[in-house]
């Protein structure tokens, strides 16, 4: 399949300089609105799920607007379903455009996945078969989203629990093809790479190493859990616990190559006290300081 050979390096637009600071940020949760506003912790930026703020009014939007005055914000979408064979939901695009204008985020991102079938929203990020058809559909939808927003978006690699018989290329190859066909950037979720690598038996380091540093606009870090099905351990990306040691090690490996990048601490279930999130963010900041300068690799622990 000639048209699917990775050509990202040659065709992709480089990431513009620092739409978010090259520091750790945290996912903003309603439980922490007041405390963040009151204490204004020293964190680089905040991220929210766009769909939670697509309302016409009410307190949540007021909180986000108030916090936006103090921090850069990244809008992370979970509902565009760019991988759906059907057309994108035009009303949803309109709401995202309105939110983008209101919040003026550093980045707008979405997932390399799909979640809408026959008009039903499944509230799940489902992997695509990596085929020529999927590539055409996905890339066209990314272009449509970027045209509507009039900006480059980032596409995040998903956690996956299954693969398809008819996939013809690997996920990182597919992602790089999307980049070259749409001009989007990459949101690289290190935990998702680790979870999928475990679930499907590939090498997470090789995956990370395939993504050129200049394409990465943002990094995600999160905790996951494990469940046993029929004697086999499956890792589930539930964002409900601290980031595990192996994922921190992968992060160090990545940062040594890429230098510091905006890095999100994602925590969406069993949400802990703000201090716990700030602690994880401080850890990421420390790794970026220690390992992020390309000349000082030796200073890095481990």
């Amino acid at each position: 399949m000639d048209q699917m050979a990775p050509t990202a390096q040659s065709l992709a637009s480089p990431i513009p300089s620092s739409p978010l600071p090259n520091r750790a940020g945290i996912g903003l949760k309603a439980q922490h609105y007041q405390e963040i506003l009151d204490t204004q912790p020293n964190i680089g930026w905040l991220e929210v799920h766009s769909e939670n703020y697509m309302c016409t009014g009410g307190p949540t939007l007021k909180w986000l607007t108030a916090l936006r005055e103090r921090y850069p914000v990244s809008l992370h979408g979970v509902g565009m379903s760019l991988g759906s064979a059907g057309p994108l939901d035009q009303a949803h695009i309109k709401r995202l455009v309105d939110l983008d204008r209101r919040i003026e985020p550093g980045w707008v991102s979405e997932h390399l996945s799909w979640s809408i079938a026959d008009g039903v929203y499944l509230n799940d990020l489902i992997a695509l078969p990596y085929t020529a058809e999927s590539l055409d559909v996905f890339s066209a939808h990314v272009r449509e989203m970027q045209d509507a927003l009039n900006r480059q978006v980032l596409i995040e690699n998903p956690s996956s629990y299954l693969r398809y018989e008819h996939s013809v290329i690997s996920e990182p190859e597919f992602l790089l093809n999307v980049v070259s066909q749409s001009g989007c950037g990459v949101l690289l979720d290190v935990n998702n790479v680790y979870v999928s690598a475990h679930n499907h038996g590939f090498d997470p380091v090789a995956y990370l190493d395939q993504i050129p540093a200049h394409l990465i606009g943002e990094i995600h870090m999160a905790g996951h859990s494990q469940t046993v099905i029929d004697g086999r351990t499956i890792r589930i990306d539930d964002h409900g616990s601290p980031i595990c040691g192996e994922v921190w090690a992968l992060y160090e490996h990545l940062i040594k190559r890429t230098g510091p990048k905006p890095t999100l601490i994602e925590w969406d279930t069993n949400i802990p006290a703000l201090d716990v999130l700030l602690g994880e963010a401080a850890k990421a900041d420390a790794i970026m300081t220690l390992c992020g300068q390309r000349e000082t690799h030796r200073a890095c622990i481990g």
């Binding site: 499944l122 509230n123 799940d124 489902i126 078969p129 629990y161 299954l162 693969r163 398809y164 018989e165 008819h166 499907h200 038996g201 099905i229 029929d230 086999r232 499956i234 589930i236």
Partner: peptide, 22 residues
């Protein structure tokens, strides 16, 4: 199910993870 790679599990078991999520 025939489109899903089992890889040590039944396709149905893998799909049940998604049924759970939804």
């Amino acid at each position: 199910a025939p489109a899903i790679i089992g890889d040590g599990l039944q396709a149905e078991q893998r799909l049940s993870i998604h049924r759970n999520n939804t």
